[in-house]
Every structure is written in structure tokens, then in C-alpha cells.
Amino acid sequence: MKQFSTLLLKEWRENLRNYKIFWIPVVFILLGVTEPLSNYYLPQILDATGGLPDGAVIELPDPEPEQLLVAVMGQFQLIGMLVLVLAYMGSIAGERRNGTATLLYVRPLSYASYFLSKWLMASIVALISVWAGFLAGYYYTAVLFSAVPFGEFLAFAVTYSLWMVLVVSLVLFASAAMPNAGLAAGLTLTVLLVLQLVDGLFGSRWKWSPLKLPNYAASFLDIGPDATALIWTLAISLVCLIALAALGIWFSKRNRAKTKV
């Protein structure tokens, strides 16, 4: 526990001093506001670029505010996730490769504290980012169009947060298991892509899957997800989370000899 707080302080200082704790949330906020803003100003933008013949009246139906938030989530699923994966791919593999880990590993280090301190810090940054981005998107949608019921929004954001934490766990696990940051990112993105593809193609056959978390999050803005399906999905996600953390700790310890001396 003492080691955990020591290592968490180190992670905090790192994320503060390399500005990750600032720039990642800023990226998410920008993603969050771009969607409602560009939708609102789309007619004017089209008008200004002169893509339409004179006299043509642009009649675009106002998008539903729920659709806009789901579109924001879509941005997070693509750019947001990529940013988080790239930002944290080197958490462990990078430290081993540049040799900074050596001076930690020669001590009686608790690898659980080592891994979990990194996991917690990355999760905190991911959560700050997701919430800042969603709240910005929520606010802009409310001002420009109309407000989504706040309770639905909360359920949506909480469910999606769990998904992001799962993604962060996967990156850190990959960083512990892989020899370098590039391979860690490659493994994470491949796993995410393949699983999403599988779930997209055959997902109608099952209802319990962590990959459905974003879908269930989105359905909170609609009719709400099926309660049993959601509960089982949450339970399985939790199991995945713990398994990834346990494997991450195990790999951190096993790969300690790979650090550059």
C-alpha cells in the first residue's frame, strides 16, 4: 500500500509534467463540441462554401439531441480511443525499453502496486477526458438544440466510462506483455478491431458482451437497455477488467528481466 501511493505520486507527476492530464481532456472536449456545433452551423457552412445553386433553400431536419451525443460517442470510439491507446502504450514497455524501469525493478518492488498505480492514473485521465468531452457535448447540444434528460445522460456516460476503463486496462496489459510500445498499441488495436468486427457480424446471437457496453450506453438515451442483459454485461466486463489487471501484473513481473540495464 505504501509502495502504491509512492508509485501513484510518480505517475501523477509524470502525467502532470508531460501535460497528458491537460491535452487529452482538451482533445475530448473538442471532439465533444465539434459534433453539435458543426451540425448547427452546417447550413451556414454549406451556404458560405457556395456548394449550392443560387436560390436553393437548405432544408435540413434538426438532428435529435440524442443522436448528437451518440455521434460524440462515435468520435470517442474512433479518435478518442486511438489517442488513449497511443498515449499509454509505452507505460510499461517504454519504461523497460528506455531503461528507466531498471532502477525500480532492482528494489523489492510490488508489481501489483507498480501495475495498478499506472492503471489508476491512466483510468483517471481517461475518465476526466470522457466526462469533460461528454459534458461539453451535452452543454452545446442543450444550448443549440434541446437538452437530453440529465438522468439518461448520466446513465449513458457512466456506462460508456466503464468501457473506456476496460480499454485502458487492455492497453496497460498489452504494455506489460509486449516488448515495446508499438507492439503494445498494435496488439490493443487489433484486439479491439477484431472483437468489434466479430460482435458486429455475429453479435445478434448474444447479449452479454463487454463490446456491447457502448451500445447499451447509447440505448440509455433511447428506450433503455434490457436490464438483465446489461447486468450480465456489466458483470462480465468486471471479470474482464480483473483478469486484464491480474495478467498485467503477472506480465510486469515476468518481463522485468527485459529491462535495459
Binding site: 491537460f22 491535452w23 482538451v26 456545433l37 452551423y41 452545446y140 444550448v143 443549440l144
Partner: peptide, 18 residues
């Protein structure tokens, strides 16, 4: 419009400065 777009410009600027 200015009130809505301004924060974004500020954030973009902040990101650039970081």
C-alpha cells in the same frame, strides 16, 4: 455564435500553447 465558438478557439489555442 461568438460565445459558443470562443471557448473552442481558446481550447485550441491552449492546446497549441501546451
Amino acid at each position: 455564435t461568438i460565445l459558443l465558438v470562443l471557448p473552442i478557439l481558446v481550447l485550441q489555442f491552449a492546446l497549441m500553447i501546451f
